[in-house]
Amino acid sequence: MIDFPIIRVVSKFMIPYILLFGLYVQFHGDFGPGGGFQAGVIFASAIILYGLVFGLPAAKSVAPEWFVEKLIALGLVIYAGTGFTCIALGGNFLDYDVLDHHVLPGFLPHGQHLGIFVVELGVGITVTSVMIVIYYAFSARERRA
């Protein structure tokens, strides 16, 4: 679709804002509507739009396949790791109250806020990378007779 100037210019203009909006939805999810699931899909849709307009190789050079594939597992590891960290700190699985700390109060989140922040980050990473990988898998497949 790179031959259509309107699509090319408009999507070039939109993609940074879509990415920014994805980050906003991810990190502002505790205070407004949003969270890891939504942010993941929005972030992935920016990459998918890039791939649709500029072709699959261009998208793969932005988000290399091997890297995105490792991110799928990383998100889940972050989520489960938070749970085990809570156990290691003496709480129950995913009991964020034990994550309380007193470093930079008012700036760094702590306790429940920190736990939710990290967990949502894990969800966001997994959802983003799964959506991108699924898109890659479908569009790399050539049609056979």
């Binding site: 999810g29 989520y79 699985f93 995913l94 429940q112 939710i116 967990v119």
Partner: peptide, 22 residues
């Protein structure tokens, strides 16, 4: 936490969400 949906999703039902992510 102002967004109750996030609070329930990530904290009260955190184990459930872990399963969904899996």
């Amino acid at each position: 936490l102002p967004n109750v949906v996030t609070a329930v999703l990530a904290s009260y039902r955190g184990y459930d969400t872990l399963g969904e992510t899996a």
